[in-house]
Amino acid sequence: MTARTPVLGASDKLTFLLSLIPYLMDHDNVTVTEAAGHFGVPPERVRDAVRLIAVSGIPGETHQYLDGDLFDIHWDEFEDNDRIALTHLVAIDDSPRFSAREAAALIAGLQYLSSLPENADRDAVASLMAKLTRGASATPTQLAVSSPDSDAAMTVIQASGRDGVQVEFDYLNARGENEHRFVDPLRLESVDSDWYLRGWCHLRQAPRTFRLDRMSDLRATTEPVGSHDAGLVLSDTLFQASDEDLSVVIELPSSALALLADYAPDRATTPVGGDRVRTTLRVAHYHGLKRLVGGLAGLVTVVEPAEARQVVAEWAAAGAARYDEPTGRA
Rank of each mutant, 00 (worst) to 15 (best):
V272F: 05
V293N: 01
R278N: 13
R276S: 13
G298V: 08
L289V: 07
T280H: 01
P271F: 08
K290Q: 10
P305D: 14
Y263D: 11
Y263F: 14
L281P: 06
K290R: 15
T280V: 14
V277S: 07
Q310P: 02
L289C: 09
E304L: 14
A256T: 06
T280S: 09
V300D: 03
G273H: 01
D266H: 05
A264N: 10
V283Y: 12
L296G: 03
V277C: 03
A297F: 03
D262M: 02
H285L: 11
T269C: 15
E304P: 00
H285E: 11
V272T: 13
D275G: 03
S255T: 12
A256P: 00
P265A: 05
A256M: 08
A297N: 00
Y263G: 08
Y263S: 12
A268N: 10
G273E: 04
P305L: 04
A297P: 01
T269L: 13
L259C: 01
R309N: 11
L292R: 05
V277Q: 08
S255N: 05
L289Q: 09
T270P: 04
P305A: 13
D262A: 12
H285K: 09
V293D: 02
Y263H: 15
A256Q: 02
V303R: 15
P305V: 08
L289H: 12
T279G: 06
G274Q: 05
E307P: 00
P305Q: 10
A258N: 05
R278W: 04
R276E: 14
D266F: 03
T280I: 08
H287M: 09
P305C: 09
A258G: 11
L259V: 04
Y286R: 03
T301E: 14
H285C: 10
V293M: 00
A268P: 07
E304H: 10
T279Y: 06
E307I: 01
L296H: 03
L292H: 04
R282D: 12
G294Q: 15
T270G: 05
L296N: 04
L260Q: 04
A261L: 07
G295I: 02
L299V: 10
G288T: 11
A306H: 15
L296T: 02
R276D: 15
V272C: 06
R278Y: 07
V277P: 05
S255M: 01
R267M: 11
G273V: 00
R282N: 09
V272P: 05
V283W: 13
A306M: 12
A264M: 11
D266M: 03
K290S: 07
G294Y: 09
